[in-house]
């Protein structure tokens, strides 16, 4: 009787010692502790024993079962621990990376410009890219015979409908629907009949600014451009105004920022002048006010423009405007 118990126990130990892997534990359980395992069949054979031996044998079997189950659980723990050690991560392997997007650099700069003007109290306006002759030219004091209207410069859809050559038509649209005071910018795409090269694109992006109220002067215009220059490129940037000509402003000005690369000392980028041409500005011409239905005797105002592409090129030191519209991911990923 005891020999059977001992036999099962020693067989269990022998087989358990031979086990190398967690997955081999299950067959061990099935063989000894399973429903049709060695212990169960031994219980079944109790009836074969003489009556007086049966309780003792049963008790011994039960104790053995408890003992083996205990050992079996310990084995599982041991192997699981071993397995765990084996599966240790190689932390130097690269992680699974998700696709990630990003903003287009021109729109990053547009956002920055908009934020600056928004913080200065300007509203942001929008207008159509295909415009009427009236809004793009006539209302801006550029009559039919004006040299600026050369077929060379403007892209036409019909004789009277064209791709806007500047964002200035938005000025007129806003003034027509809103009484002063007005303080707005209008960013957007504009078109010119230019052959593409490193510094020209037949479409590019402008921000138009307009402020109209009683008592607005050229000194206000100089102030706002200075404020913008400082916020965009830093406090040490100087601004220079030069007389110029635009049919829709009088007096008109061209404004330059001191070169951000050489701090105005002169370098290749600024062609040794120390200045970077930015864009034009001026006091709104009375004829423009008249076309927009605003009384030029009561109100004065200033308007300015700036090229988003140009500012982005300065900011990121890019020397070919076309790279913005190629959308090469190797370029875009840098922003």
């Amino acid at each position: 009787m005891n020999t059977i118990i001992d036999k099962i126990r020693s067989e269990f130990h022998r087989e358990a010692n031979a086990i190398k892997d967690l997955k081999d534990l299950e067959p061990l359980r099935v063989k000894f502790l399973g429903r049709k395992g060695l212990l169960s069949t031994s219980f079944d054979r109790i009836s074969e024993l003489p009556k007086e031996q049966r309780p003792l044998f049963g008790k011994a079997l039960n104790e053995l079962k408890k003992e083996l189950e205990n050992e079996y659980q310990n084995l599982i723990k041991q192997f699981k621990a071993k397995e765990e050690q084996k599966r240790k991560l190689d932390l130097t392997l690269p992680g699974r990376r998700p696709f990630i997007g990003g903003k287009h650099p021109l729109l990053i700069v547009a956002d920055e410009i908009k934020d600056i003007f928004r913080s200065l109290g300007f509203s942001i306006e929008d207008g159509p890219e295909i415009e009427n002759d009236f809004f793009n030219f006539e209302a801006l004091n550029i009559p039919k015979t004006h040299p600026a209207r050369d077929m060379q410069d403007t892209l036409y859809v019909t004789d009277d409908i064209l791709l806007r050559t500047h964002t200035s038509p938005v000025q007129i649209r806003v003034m027509q629907r809103q009484k002063p005071p007005i303080q707005m910018i209008a960013p957007g795409r504009v078109y010119r009949r230019d052959t593409p090269d490193a510094s020209h694109s037949p479409f590019f992006h402008q921000v138009e600014g307009l402020v109209v109220d009683e008592g607005i002067t050229f000194a206000d215009l100089k102030g706002i451009i200075q404020a913008f220059a400082h916020r965009m490129f830093g406090e040490d940037v100087k601004v220079r105004f030069r007389p110029s000509f635009f049919p829709f402003t009088e007096p008109s000005a061209e404004y330059d920022f001191s070169c951000v690369f050489c701090k105005g000392r002169g370098c290749r980028v600024c062609k040794n002048t120390g200045w970077m041409e930015i864009s034009g500005a001026g006091m709104v011409h009375p004829n423009v006010f008249k076309a927009a239905g605003i009384d030029p005797e009561t109100y004065t105002g200033y308007a300015f423009g700036m090229g988003i592409d140009r500012i982005a090129m300065i900011k990121y030191n890019i020397n070919d405007i076309r790279i913005f519209f190629e959308n090469d991911v190797r370029f875009l990923n840098q922003f």
Binding site: L120, S123, I124, V211, A219, D220, I224, F241
Partner: peptide, 20 residues
């Protein structure tokens, strides 16, 4: 000379303009 014209420190005139 434009450089000799005054520049006014920027002060916003009003504005309670809602964002569109």
């Amino acid at each position: 000379n434009y450089s000799n014209l005054p520049a006014k420190d920027f002060t916003t005139i009003f504005y309670d303009m809602p964002q569109s």
